[in-house]
């Protein structure tokens, strides 16, 4: 079925400065094009018709994975999801992110889709958001005025809305080196295994205490159950510095259930999503704790 886009004026800046000046000149009317897997679909399917489209893929120096032992991981905004999925260092040291990346769309989509696009598109179901928030990632935002760094947790404002202001570009994702004994898991739930936007997703990233007995610094992030990726703070708190037990896991699941505030849509009802939050949070915690369901 042919879905023709409306015509637009196309720009291909070769430096960030050029990109900023175009953004400022066409104030609010220009759409940034990275992989295009969200933007072009919106233009074809949902009648989005920007007057100007600016492809940023010709700007050098925005596509990289830099890792510094004991310090941090830096990912350029234009890095594709496929590159993240297959990166050895991300697989080894930040496996929860590689895991999430591998669940986004198909290989064809992942070969185009960028991490910057996934975050800036700000879908409540954005695949890479829960694990990155759980890993305490920050984003570097660049504009003519300079750079600013925002914790990813504060980046999302609502469905499709972020703190990015006119004239700003997401440049880099910074993931701090995790403490020793940190484990993470990401579970995506959809009707089928492949090619499905998450109905509900859960990332749990937690650090085991020095004695190895209790989970400290627990991060539970829920996808697709609120206007933005959601931290289940009450659920996190009950787990903090406690010895894991089945009754405690039940309680955590119940709290996460209460914190989720999903909508009903064509993929699932709100009630069903809430139930699935409970199931998936419990499953995630059992898995990182090495417990099997009794």
């Amino acid at each position: 079925m042919l879905r023709k886009m409306k015509r637009f004026e196309y720009f291909e800046p070769s430096t960030l400065e050029e990109a900023f000046s175009l953004l400022n000149k066409y104030n609010g009317k220009v759409k940034i094009l990275s992989g295009g897997t969200d933007l072009l679909v919106a233009m074809k399917e949902r009648g989005l018709a920007p007057s100007y489209v600016m492809n940023v893929k010709c700007i050098p120096g925005l596509d990289y994975i830099k890792y510094e032992e004991k310090k941090d991981l830096r990912i350029g905004a234009l890095t594709t999801i496929r590159t993240i999925e297959t990166s050895n260092v991300i697989r080894e040291k930040f496996s929860v992110l590689a895991q999430a990346a591998s669940m986004l769309g198909s290989i064809q989509v992942r070969n185009r889709a960028t991490i910057g696009g996934n975050l800036c598109n700000a879908a409540p179901s954005a695949e890479t958001a829960p694990s990155l928030i759980g890993l305490k990632a920050k984003v570097k935002i660049a504009s003519l005025e300079g750079e600013r760094i925002v914790p990813l947790e504060k980046f999302f404002v609502g469905p499709g809305i972020t703190v990015l202001k006119k004239g700003e570009i997401l440049a880099e994702i910074i993931v701090p080196f995790p403490l020793p004994h940190t484990k993470g898991i990401y579970i995506k739930y959809g009707r089928r295994k492949a090619m499905e936007i998450a109905m509900v997703s859960v990332a749990v990233i937690a650090t085991l205490s020095v004695e190895g007995e209790v989970w400290e610094d627990v991060n539970i992030i829920l996808g697709a159950v609120a206007p933005t990726p959601l931290r289940a703070r009450k659920a996190e708190e009950v787990l903090q510095s406690k010895r894991i037990s089945e009754p405690l896991i039940e309680k955590v699941g119940q709290l996460a259930y209460e914190e989720a505030c999903p909508i009903s849509d064509m993929r699932a009802s709100a009630d069903y999503r809430k139930e699935m939050v409970k199931v998936l949070v419990k499953k995630a915690i059992r898995e990182i704790s090495g417990l099997k369901k009794s």
Binding site: L33, G36, T37, L40, N55, I107, Q108, V109, N111, R112
Partner: peptide, 18 residues
């Protein structure tokens, strides 16, 4: 699906111009 620089992509989601 076509191979663009050797990698499979959906050609319906790539602008000819890019």
């Amino acid at each position: 699906t076509v191979l663009l620089e050797g990698k499979p992509v959906n050609s319906c989601l790539v602008l000819a111009i890019e």
